[in-house]
């Protein structure tokens, strides 16, 4: 049911209140941050042969980990806690590693108040997830596990956010306000948090098997375009950090990047894995799970219906040869 203007007004008021709270904590953090230059920090240098006592333990879905500090220190590092969750996109041998945030208030629709009492675990930064190999979880200490009810709840939330579904009503008040304005300080916060987790998961710390499909892969845009933000906000989507979707052909040779074009359509660009243009699929088309087809691909670009954006299943060339697709983000 479409909301009336009064309900919309109330929603916006609540969002502004949440934003005010977040901005207050952000500004507070900035005030306390200065002067850190006076405190000695470990000299950034790479350890030879790996750091001492990386104690691996048996971990599984629902376990909360404290990631061990990386070999090369970020100047103002903080402990990074993260939870292991099942990947909603079935992938063999991979989990999601989802970090917790530094603040008590969620910044964006992609951050969610967990209800856990421990201060480092108050807000889950779902947008900043990474896919990790089950056999190569980054060096960590296991700090606790979620109980069964919590595991189900966390799984439901992350599934909604990654699959671009609307959160259940009772969870919607627990996410942050939409990010609309290009001058919003949250842009800077998101970059810093992404960088902080990237720094934790650098090569050489046991995380070499990290999937390159993670949001930190440089060729995948992590920052939504401004038009995306308005569309995401207008549709009350709680997904954050995804520009429109990225697929890979199952042989890994090609990337299919999806971008919003207007309210009804998306633009799709097919490129080689190294980022160079490809005309290999010109005069072909993309096909969705429900059988819809895109317009014909020309110069590596195709137009498709918005409804197809989240459910492409194959790339078909001019000769009719089918290349299955897997969703990366």
């Amino acid at each position: 049911m479409k909301k009336d203007r009064f309900s919309q007004s109330n929603d916006r008021a609540a969002e502004r209140q949440r934003l005010a709270e977040w901005l207050a904590e952000w500004e507070l953090d900035g005030l306390l941050d200065e002067g850190e230059q006076q405190i000695p920090h470990p000299a950034p240098r790479r350890l030879s042969g790996g750091s001492a006592s990386y104690a691996q333990s048996d971990v599984g879905v629902g376990d909360i980990l404290l990631l061990q500090p990386p070999a090369i220190r970020h100047p103002l590092d903080r402990p990074v806690y993260a939870v292991l969750l099942d990947d909603p996109k079935p992938s063999v041998g991979q989990w999601l590693l989802v970090p917790f945030g530094p603040f008590a208030v969620p910044a964006t629709p992609g951050e969610w108040v967990t209800g856990l009492r421990a201060e480092p675990l108050r807000v889950l930064c779902c947008w900043n997830y990474r896919r990790v190999s089950i056999s190569a979880v980054p060096p960590h200490w296991r700090v606790r596990g979620l109980n069964k009810g919590q595991r189900l709840l966390f799984a439901e939330v992350i599934r909604c956010l990654i699959d671009d579904r609307v959160l259940p009503e009772r969870q919607r008040s627990r996410v942050g306000p939409p990010l609309l304005h290009p001058g919003d300080p949250r842009h800077r916060y998101l970059e810093e948090e992404r960088e902080r987790v990237d720094c934790q998961l650098e090569p050489g710390t046991g995380a070499d098997d990290l999937s390159t499909d993670s949001p930190s892969a440089p060729y995948i845009s992590e920052t939504p375009g401004f038009d995306d933000l308005e569309r995401l906000a207008a549709e009350s989507r709680t997904r954050y950090g995804l520009r429109g979707g990225v697929y890979l052909t199952t042989d890994g040779a090609c990337i299919v990047a999806v971008y919003p074009l207007d309210a009804e359509r998306v633009k799709v660009r097919i490129v080689n894995r190294d980022g160079t243009s490809t005309a290999a699929f010109d005069r072909g088309y993309l096909e969705a799970e429900d059988g819809q087809r895109s317009e014909r691909i020309e110069t590596g670009v195709a137009i498709a219906a918005q409804s197809m954006a989240m459910q492409f299943r194959s790339l078909v060339d001019a000769e009719g040869q089918v290349r299955p697709l897997k969703r990366s983000r």
Partner: peptide, 15 residues
């Protein structure tokens, strides 16, 4: 286990 932040402090200094 809930106080693993102590290990974080010392692991950081080990470098």
């Amino acid at each position: 286990a809930g106080k693993a932040y102590k290990k974080w402090l010392f692991a950081r200094a080990a470098a």
